[in-house]
Amino acid sequence: MTMKPAARPACAHFSSGPCAKIPGWSPHLLNTESLGRSHRSSLGKARLKRAIALTREVLEVPDTHLIGIVPASDTGAVEMAMWSLLGPRPVDMLAWESFGEGWVSDVTKQLKLRDARRITAPYGELPDLATVDFDHDVVFTWNGTTSGVRVPDAKWIDADRRGLTICDATSAAFAQALDFEKLDVVTFSWQKVLGGEGAHGVLILGPRAVARLESHVPGWPMPKIFRLTSGGKLIAGIFEGETINTPSMLCVEDYILALEWAQSVGGLRGLIKRADANAAVVQGWIDGRDFASNLAQLPETRSNTSVCLTLKADESVPKKMVKLLEAERAAFDIGSYRDAPPGLRIWCGATVETSDLEALMPWLDWAFAQAAAG
Rank of each mutant, 00 (worst) to 15 (best):
C308W: 05
T64N: 14
K21D: 10
G231P: 08
L324C: 06
F239S: 05
I235P: 04
T145I: 10
A46F: 00
W25T: 07
V265T: 00
W285Y: 15
V186G: 04
A173E: 00
S248L: 15
H136I: 09
G44C: 00
R118S: 04
S38R: 00
F368R: 06
D276F: 00
A6R: 12
D128M: 12
C308N: 14
M82G: 01
L298H: 08
I69N: 03
S215V: 14
P23R: 14
V107N: 03
E326P: 06
P90W: 11
R302Y: 05
S26Q: 12
D168M: 03
V202N: 01
L111T: 03
T243F: 14
L295M: 14
R302T: 03
T145A: 11
R56W: 08
P23N: 14
G148E: 06
L113A: 01
F226N: 12
K182P: 02
W366N: 09
P90E: 10
E358K: 15
C308Y: 07
V185K: 02
Y123T: 07
D184V: 02
F239E: 02
A130W: 10
K155D: 15
F291S: 09
M249N: 07
Q370G: 09
S316A: 15
F14Q: 04
S147Y: 04
K320D: 13
R302W: 02
G163P: 03
K49W: 01
K49P: 00
G100A: 11
D133S: 11
K182N: 07
L178R: 04
I119F: 07
L164G: 03
D92M: 13
C308E: 05
L364Q: 07
A372M: 14
V151G: 01
L360G: 01
C308I: 09
D153K: 11
L66S: 07
K109Q: 05
G284T: 14
I157D: 02
E97W: 08
L183K: 04
T354E: 15
K4F: 03
G266F: 00
A51V: 02
T310F: 05
N245H: 14
T131C: 13
D254W: 08
G196M: 05
S248W: 15
R212D: 08
D115G: 06
L344D: 01
L250N: 13
S38C: 00
L364A: 08
T187M: 04
K323T: 13
F332G: 06
V317W: 02
L228P: 02
S293M: 14
V58P: 01
L364D: 04
T170M: 00
W156C: 06
E101C: 15
Y337R: 11
P221V: 10
T351W: 03
T120C: 13
N31Y: 00
L311Y: 07
A95H: 05
T55L: 06
L271N: 02
L194T: 05
A277G: 13
I256S: 04
L324D: 02
S38T: 00
G144T: 08
E79M: 04
P221S: 13
R118L: 10
F368Y: 15
E300W: 06
E125V: 10
K192R: 15
V149A: 05
E79P: 01
G288T: 13
F291W: 14
E57N: 00
P90Y: 09
E125D: 15
F239L: 13
I166Y: 01
G102F: 02
Y337V: 08
K182A: 11
E358H: 12
C167K: 04
A173P: 04
G44L: 00
G270A: 04
M222T: 10
